[in-house]
Computed example of a mutant assay.
Amino acid sequence: MRVLLGGRADQLVGRREVRELVVRPDAQRRGLGQALLAAIVQDTPSWLLTATAITTATGFYQRLGWRHLVTGAGLMVYLSPPA
């Protein structure tokens, strides 16, 4: 992870890590993912890691205002929007 982040690793210090968030395909597009993510983050500066191949996830995070930090080795790191 440090290799992927390089000098940007310090941007994750003090932030909450969102480890895993998945909504079944038949339950998507109903606001569940957004509600779950809001409940997890609770306006706390956070970060998450997702696979670049999961394009629905990357689009979802971007629509919610999460900022892309870095991409590498098939992974993307996002930072939560300012509270």
Score class of each variant (00 low, 15 high):
residue 13 V to E: 10
residue 49 L to Y: 00
residue 31 G to D: 09
residue 32 L to W: 03
residue 12 L to Y: 02
residue 45 P to N: 10
residue 1 M to T: 14
residue 73 A to Q: 14
residue 28 Q to R: 15
residue 68 H to F: 05
residue 1 M to W: 05
residue 17 E to A: 09
residue 32 L to F: 00
residue 65 G to N: 00
residue 41 V to K: 06
residue 76 M to F: 05
residue 4 L to M: 14
residue 13 V to N: 07
residue 44 T to P: 04
residue 66 W to A: 03
residue 52 T to E: 15
residue 77 V to G: 03
residue 71 T to H: 14
residue 39 A to I: 01
residue 17 E to G: 05
residue 27 A to G: 13
residue 12 L to R: 13
residue 52 T to P: 05
residue 27 A to D: 04
residue 1 M to D: 11
residue 15 R to A: 05
residue 45 P to W: 15
residue 20 E to Y: 15
residue 35 A to T: 13
residue 52 T to Q: 10
residue 60 F to R: 06
residue 66 W to Y: 07
residue 21 L to C: 12
residue 63 R to H: 08
residue 52 T to N: 11
residue 32 L to Y: 08
residue 43 D to L: 06
residue 31 G to Y: 09
residue 65 G to Q: 09
residue 28 Q to D: 06
residue 46 S to K: 11
residue 64 L to P: 09
residue 22 V to Y: 09
residue 17 E to C: 08
residue 83 A to I: 08
residue 37 L to C: 06
residue 54 I to N: 15
residue 34 Q to W: 04
residue 75 L to G: 08
residue 74 G to D: 13
residue 43 D to R: 15
residue 17 E to Y: 06
residue 5 L to M: 08
residue 77 V to S: 02
residue 40 I to A: 15
residue 27 A to R: 07
residue 21 L to T: 13
residue 51 A to N: 13
residue 55 T to V: 09
residue 12 L to F: 00
residue 69 L to S: 06
residue 53 A to T: 10
residue 3 V to R: 06
residue 10 D to Y: 12
residue 73 A to I: 01
residue 7 G to A: 10
residue 50 T to F: 07
residue 54 I to D: 15
residue 60 F to K: 07
residue 45 P to G: 00
residue 82 P to D: 12
residue 46 S to N: 10
residue 50 T to G: 10
residue 71 T to K: 14
residue 45 P to F: 10
residue 55 T to R: 13
residue 83 A to W: 11
residue 80 S to T: 06
residue 79 L to I: 06
residue 25 P to Q: 02
residue 22 V to W: 02
residue 41 V to Y: 00
residue 10 D to T: 04
residue 53 A to K: 14
residue 16 R to F: 01
residue 7 G to F: 02
residue 25 P to N: 06
residue 34 Q to N: 02
residue 83 A to H: 14
residue 33 G to T: 05
residue 68 H to L: 04
residue 57 A to E: 02
residue 58 T to K: 11
residue 6 G to Y: 01
residue 62 Q to T: 11
residue 62 Q to C: 05
residue 30 R to P: 00
residue 58 T to H: 10
residue 4 L to R: 06
residue 19 R to C: 13
residue 78 Y to V: 00
residue 15 R to C: 07
residue 33 G to W: 11
residue 56 T to R: 10
residue 69 L to A: 00
residue 82 P to G: 15
residue 24 R to T: 14
residue 34 Q to K: 08
residue 40 I to S: 05
residue 75 L to E: 01
residue 10 D to G: 00
residue 15 R to V: 05
residue 75 L to C: 03
residue 14 G to E: 11
residue 52 T to H: 03
residue 16 R to K: 14
residue 63 R to T: 09
residue 57 A to Q: 11
residue 39 A to V: 01
residue 13 V to W: 07
residue 77 V to E: 00
residue 14 G to T: 14
residue 79 L to K: 07
residue 17 E to T: 05
residue 1 M to E: 13
residue 23 V to S: 02
residue 8 R to V: 02
residue 80 S to E: 09
residue 19 R to D: 14
residue 9 A to R: 04
residue 70 V to H: 06
residue 8 R to I: 00
residue 32 L to H: 10
residue 68 H to K: 07
residue 52 T to F: 04
residue 38 A to G: 08
residue 47 W to E: 04
residue 19 R to N: 06
residue 21 L to F: 04
residue 21 L to V: 14
residue 62 Q to H: 12
residue 79 L to F: 01
residue 32 L to Q: 00
residue 3 V to F: 09
residue 82 P to V: 12
residue 83 A to K: 11
residue 9 A to N: 09
residue 24 R to F: 12
residue 7 G to I: 03
residue 22 V to S: 07
residue 21 L to E: 07
residue 43 D to I: 00
residue 70 V to E: 13
